[in-house]
Every structure is written in structure tokens, then in C-alpha cells.
Amino acid sequence: MHSRLSAFNITALVTGFAFLYLPIVILVIFSFNASRLVTVWGGFSTQWYGALLENEGIRSAAAVTLKVALISSTFATVLGTLAGLILARFGSFRGRTLFSGMIYAPMVMPEVITGLSLLLAFVALAIDRGMMTITLAHITFSLCYVAVVVQSRLVTFDNALEEAAMDLGATPARTFFQVTLPVIMPAVVSGWLLSFTLSLDDLVIASFTSGPGATTLPMKIYSQVRLGVTPEINAVSTIIVGLVAGGVIIASLIAKQARRDSDANHP
């Protein structure tokens, strides 16, 4: 489509994106506020970032969060890629409806239900609650997102290449690693990143499934937010937003480049 943007289009875009971004921008700006008040600008200062470094609670919560996110996103990517492959390439099998149901449902399931049900399962299985249970819970809901991302990449890519490889005698495993995986790699990478940020962000499910001693960063932030808006929370939020934004932008540029390359190789 070559039409220019109308005045209506521009208005919709400007107001829409202002709505999406202003709150975050304000939050970032006020993390550099010298004053403790959130509405009064008291000059530029990085004191709240310094205060963060000395805050033992926040530091240990950040460490727990990163560990959980790294482990859970890696496992979720492996399981989710398998699940996406099954959905896109395995045709029909007994129990397929249930399988795809279990992939799509966790994405819309209210978090309080997922959190409660996983907690009760861990209690029933007598697994001690802590970092391990948060990780298991995060793997479970993240793998569904990875599956959907991988599946949607696979359905846009013709399986003729895979069939050719197998006709030439490659084992299915070899076909997967040498033909399929390179093609879906951008989807696998963005699935991993998505899992990582989902895990980094999660408050509700982590609160249900964690035990004493395992406090994640969102749980820490939540307990402080309830007491009111503070510049320290603004500072920690700014760091998280910055990390996520940087990661997403780099990842999508890589994905865009990869897509351009693969389009150039297989017109």
C-alpha cells in the first residue's frame, strides 16, 4: 500500500504512542530526581541508583530473579521448540486437541489460577517450595509462548527442504538439527528472550509458588510499591526497562537481518 498517512492516521498514532510511552518516560525521568517527592523536580541526581547498590534486599532478589529467568527460559525454549514442532509438523495424533489446548490455554489463563494450581501441585508432590518451584512454574507457562512463536515460524516455511533432506537419507534427528533448526533459529531465539522477560516480570505466579527465602525482584518491588511511590523503585524499574528494551531491540534487529538473509537465500 502506498497511500500517505492521513491526518486521522497521524493523530491516532501520536496519541496512541504517547499514551503507551508517557508513563514509562515519566517514571524514568523521576528516577533521576534529587527530590524524594514524585511531582516536584528537585534537580538531576543519581543518588537513588547509588542507594540501590547498597540495598542488600534488592540485590539478592535480583540475583534470584536472574537465576530463575536464565534456567527457566532455557528449559522452556527446548520444550517449547519441541511442542511447536509437534504442532506444526506432526500432523494429527491421538490427543492432539488436548495438546494444543494445553499450549494455548496457559497464555490466557488468569495468573491467580495458574499460580494457585501449581502451588497445590507442588504441595501434593511434596516438592519444597523455593527457587526450584518458581523455576518449574515459569518453564510451564513460558514453554507455551515459545511453542506458539516456533509454530508460527514453521507454518510460514515450506517443509519441502526437510522432505528433501530425508529423501537423501538424513535421519529425522539430523534433518531437524541441520535443516529445520537453522531456519527456525530466529524464532527460537526470540522465544528464549520472551521466556526470559516473562520470568523476569512475573509477580503473581512467583508469589504463589515461592517459599521462604526465595524472593524475586517483582515480589520485592510489589511489597515496596504497596507502601507508596519511591525514587528507589523508579530507579530499579528504569534499570529493568532499559535492559529489556535494549535486549528486545537488539533481538528484533537480529531477527530482521536473519529474515532478510534467508529471504535472499531462498527467494
Binding site: 508513563p23 514509562i24 515519566i26 517514571l27 520472551l194 522477560t197 523476569l200 516480570d201 509477580l203 517483582p218 518491588i221 510489589y222 510499591v225 511511590v229 523503585i233 524499574s237 529493568i240 526497562v241 529489556v244 528494551a245 528486545v248
Partner: peptide
């Protein structure tokens, strides 16, 4: 992709 909690907190 940005933290849900942080975006709610911003408001």
C-alpha cells in the same frame, strides 16, 4: 515485553 508491574506502578 516491559514489566507489567512496573507499567502499572508508573500510573
Amino acid at each position: 515485553w516491559t514489566s507489567f508491574l512496573i507499567r502499572v506502578y508508573a500510573w
